[in-house]
Amino acid sequence: MTDNGRNPLREGIHTFVVYVEDKPGVLNRVASLFRRRAFNIESLAVGPTDRPGISRMTIAVKTDDVVARRVEANLYKLVNVLRVENVTHLPTVMRDLALIKVKADSSTRAQVLQMCDVFRARAVDVTPDSLIVEITGTEEKIESLCEVLRPFGILEMVRTGRVAMTRGSDVPSTNPEFVAARVPNGSAS
């Protein structure tokens, strides 16, 4: 069985953009849903939107297309969830941001900075024996940078998790049909 030539049962990372009411406990409700239904969260990023009272989450889930549809439907079922988009198969910009504190003294600093240059990462803090490097990009790009920095000694690292936005001018948050019901396509064939 294929959907648009894809195998719906092949596992992959699905990315959901989720708009929620900015109320106490909403993050807990979302997290609880994933735990309760044993959906596998890879990463979850949350922050405010340009609209007061509405937050935006990017949730990456490792699963197949059939379960992904159930994830979407389950998210919709939460009373405080306003809109869910599975952007996995849409043209989308996806970014992760990392801050990496790496050992670098006068003997290695130049080398480290050179590596950062290759990855278009920037040094945002310098001390005599360390650097903080900031990088944004896909998870793969960040992981590759980590690979090359590891020999110098990574002291500390923090990542935001994936954030995503679809390309083009069709902006869901300004759509007047913002809360219109969307029925997950129930067909399996």
């Binding site: 059939v66 079922k77 997950p184 129930g186 067909s187 399996a188």
Partner: peptide, 21 residues
């Protein structure tokens, strides 16, 4: 064919050919 008011029930336990929410 599965008719259910709750979309999360469609394809939950049994994969169906038609899901009508």
């Amino acid at each position: 064919i599965h008719i259910d008011i709750d979309p999360t029930e469609i394809d939950k336990n049994v994969r169906v050919d038609v899901g009508i929410v």
